[in-house]
Nucleic acid binder design. Structure first.
Lengths: 215, 215, 215, 215
DNA sequence: TATGAATGAGTTTTCATTCAT
DNA sequence: TATGAATGAAAACTCATTCAT
């Protein structure tokens, strides 16, 4: 009946991806609250009701962004950490994959790390995601120690994993602001920091506070 | 009839402090955008116009919170790091002061770390504050190395400081969610992670990536 | 069930006109500051956000009113002043058109003359409009004089035009408060005042102050 | 008891004058609505509650300004129009006094002419004041005609007076924006416009519309 | 007399969300 | 599927006005 060409009426999956891409960009540069559905619809080149039809409310949309980017990140890391390699090698590959991802997906990283943090409704969502990474790392550490015949209490392991992940995030965030930096070099720096430290711990060397008399 | 003291009609300085306290609490639990001036005024037990009269706009109010909490944190750390002590001792004291602060000022920490991050207008403000800490840490590392006769390029030092600070922040954030944890113990864990690592680096041991052929 | 036509969901152009009409009415009776966007939206039978969506801020809305009414007025006058007629005839037609307009568009006149005056942001806008009229009048006077072989300094011409326009405005304002008065009669009165005066001036008769000794 | 010198605790009349002066300045530059009681109190170098104690509400304050400036203006004109002089001389003196007043009291003029106009609560107040002047003028015209043995219907006289007053206001407003112009010269221009016209009318010359066939 | 402290009531403006076509 | 038209609800901010000292 109509001569309209096949410009619009894209299949659902494609449209959804376009919208998510647009949403990630907008959320990344504005933050959750300051981003408006109008701007997102504009960025996606689509009308607002379509966004609602496809992705639901603004919260659902942000959650979807979080999910997609988080999953991509996790998959990048997990895919890089080949299980049977030795601990050191796995750590190195994981870090490298992580920094490469951040270098290549700055918007996604901003959404995950800078914007999701403080917004009440997503704190849980994000914490869960972060926890999955931390557990991966803690598991690696654990197996590293076990392979060495040593044993560490889970609580301590968890803290260590938090430290490692936090350090990586901080450096990754620096990377997100320095587009010219080389992710692989940064991964090396992190190994400097984490491995030589972790290596010592694996070797059983612990640190104990000096006997400061007054505090 | 009643012994009720002068609840209302307080002098300006007192009211200002009350408002800042309230604002820090509200910003901490809602984030900058989701917090409403109404809620802050309520929390302070005062009417909205007073908040505007004393602290200016919402942005100025948030900045004031950032400033007060940031200054407190910095002072706590700097006050603990006695200059003439050896490097290790200084690091230990600094970390301990940091974790103690976070344990005692959870709301302030949330404002500084979780909320300020993504909000456009304050990113700079916060980055500056963070940078001051990082420079302190980098300075410490630098002098530690110099005392040892070694030399490291500034860029590497900075990254290392980012890692150290990020690790501490991450563990501190964990602490903020675990009120029963002991800050001093966490500081010890951080030393485990940071010092044995840093110690190795100070001793000249660097890590180098394995010669993985394909990537 | 009912034959009610499409009251809502009107096309943009129609709604915009409705809004301007309503705005002119409300501004006319309240003045710029005292008018609230709520009242304007109500008067237009529409919700506030639509007003913002279509006409922008309150200032832009008022400017739009000023523009529309000013343009209408100017067009009414200019359309009436056929160029090739003699000066007297042109003046008469211009005045008659002016008074007819004011009689038929009391609200528009109130917005232009009574409300725009004092409000800082529009003074310029309005002054420009008024100036256009004054220049038209001054031009007419000038050509009237030139046709007569006489010459008057531009500054004097301008003042004279100000006087003529001011006199007309004042009488028009009286008309706006006396709905039963006949615009054409008033235009005649103005000619009495202006033309017999102007006629004398055209004839070269100037007035000079008496030699009052003390002042 | 105290050594405080006689800076404050001024007699009521003085304080009131200071406040009115300040109010006139502020209203003049901001308009009634945009002026804030804070700014007025500041300008008067006094605290807000004092303004309320002395002059009542904001409306009352503005009314007081209107009254004072209006009375001054009226007195200046009436004082200049010595009753027994001939019509022409009285008109000339009245106009000169008017333009001199506006030149010397620009703020007062702005309050009377530009700001009061549109503000609902004062329209009546102002109209009354204007009417008093118009009646003075109409009375002058009437006696001028009577002395000449002619008679004009009151309605026509009123319109003429409106025209004369409006013309003067318009030129006066021009003067308020041109501080370097000489009020007496402007008064002369107005006589050019008004007297040569009025003189003709007094001589019985009326204008009648041309017999335009179609309108 | 004089004022710093305090607020109720309103203003403009924005935004997520939904109809009706 | 796709969208222009439409709105309820809320947020930041201001101001005339008053109290308590």
């Amino acid at each position: 009946m109509s001569t309209t060409p096949a410009f619009r009426r894209l299949p659902r999956a494609v449209r959804e991806r376009q919208m998510l891409d647009a949403a990630v960009r907008v959320f990344s540069r504005r933050g959750f609250h300051a981003a408006s559905m109008d701007e997102i619809a504009d960025e996606a080149g689509i009308s607002k009701p379509m966004v609602y039809a496809y992705l639901g409310s603004k919260e659902e949309l942000f959650t979807a962004c979080l999910h997609r980017e988080g999953t991509r990140l996790l998959e990048a890391i997990v895919g890089a950490v080949v299980p049977d390699l030795p601990f050191e090698e796995r750590l190195w590959r994981g870090l490298r994959a992580f920094f490469r991802f951040v270098g290549a997906h700055r918007d996604g990283w901003a959404v995950l790390y800078r914007q999701g943090r403080g917004e009440r409704p997503f704190a849980g969502e994000l914490a869960a995601m972060r926890h999955r990474i931390i557990e991966v790392v803690a598991g690696m550490l654990d197996r590293g120690l076990a392979a060495d015949g040593r044993e560490v209490r889970p609580a301590e392991l968890e803290i260590m994993a938090y430290a490692l992940v936090g350090a990586s995030e901080s450096v990754a965030d620096w990377l997100a602001d320095h587009p010219d930096a080389d992710p692989d070099v940064l991964a090396g720096r992190m190994m400097d920091f984490a491995w030589t430290g972790a290596g010592n711990l694996l070797a059983g060397r612990r640190w104990s506070p000096p006997p400061a008399p007054t505090d």
